[in-house]
Write a protein that binds this DNA or RNA. Structure first.
Lengths: 195, 195
DNA sequence: GTCTATACCAAGATAGAC
DNA sequence: GTCTATCTTGGTATAGAC
């Protein structure tokens, strides 16, 4: 039987972040009210402020946590000597990581302008770190003579933009399996940077 | 000398749309108030309702106008027999058209979820038309044996996603000229769909 | 066509009881 | 830790004077 009062502190915090994640992704940060989030969790709006100082912190927490997850997961990938293999590994990692977290990814790209300047700078720095990882791979490949890209920075952004596009259309259970998607994109990326 | 009262009807309408465009692109539809838009134009909030029935119509007008511009401009491009040449032309057109209208483009991608379902469907249909144009080129190329893409639909979305990425970083007067950007992206797209 | 004034409602956030 | 109640602000939209 559902309680309408009393303490739920053991799970409320995470539930608030989950609800905010879902609602921000669905309607956008600015369009979602603290009351909506509270309603989704099943508490009153005032109770949210036991877990977050304000709405902005809620957004920042979600985005920062996502970027931390991304960089941690990526840090677990081993680099080898062969740049082509590193690139193949990056493409697979990127697609899978992002498809597993559509809401987080959506927010991370759409809500940047709703961050305060300080929070924005922090997220941007993390994003830059991730991009530099890929750029390093491309630079290695150019140095090794296995890639031909006129500008590694632009190529980095182009590859990431292309891969991010997957999230806008892929639905599990659809026409293509995850493996097929990965193969298709790897094929295009590989050729795009090829000699 | 600035008037604080009186009729400005000859220019107010377009100025409202310009102000809304700028503010929506900067802060997001949901975060911008009618009062802000009015302030940017230099009228009182109530006056806006002589030009638009509501805020939603303002957004829809901007997005629909942008998609109409896109399709009209694209319709002016001549198709030739050579698929490779058509693709080259498409890439150049897309980059230039979109870089000339960063605010409109930004809104067209970011504010889709703030459209009512009916308005969303209308915009989606126009976007689909544009995508089908590119997909037709890719299909021709595959039929002619000059392109190798495992899936024309996915390749279409991948190419567009890659090209759209330009808008997130390109600034005129920066390190690269528009011609250089176009060359770099054409190089990658060409190779990505090559045999 | 724009103004001032306002109706009406919902926002973020806080206070104090339990 | 959550509730109810409320403060304060600002939102969209409308009415009626000029």
């Amino acid at each position: 039987m559902a309680r309408t009062q009393g303490s739920h502190s053991d799970i409320t915090g995470p539930r608030i972040h989950k609800a905010a994640l879902k609602l921000f992704a669905q309607h956008g940060y600015a369009a979602v009210s603290m009351r909506q989030i509270a309603g989704e969790v099943g508490v009153q709006a005032g109770a949210l402020y036991n877990y977050t100082p304000d709405k902005q912190s809620l957004l920042f927490h979600l985005m920062h946590g996502h970027m931390d997850d991304l960089l941690s997961a990526r840090a677990g990938s081993k680099r080898v000597k062969d740049a082509l293999e590193n690139l193949r590994q990056f493409v697979g990692f990127h697609i899978r990581f992002h498809l597993e977290r559509p809401d987080e990814v959506f927010i991370a790209y759409m809500e940047l302008r709703n961050l305060t300047p300080e929070n924005f700078a922090a997220i941007e720095a993390l994003r830059r770190t991730y991009e530099n990882d890929l750029e390093g791979i491309l630079r290695d490949g150019v140095a090794q003579g296995v890639f031909a890209v006129p500008d590694t920075k632009v190529a980095t952004l182009a590859v990431i933009a292309m891969l991010n596009g997957v999230n806008t259309w892929y639905r599990s259970g659809g026409r293509l399996s995850l493996d097929q998607v990965e193969t298709i994109y790897w094929d295009m990326v590989r050729k795009a940077v090829a000699l």
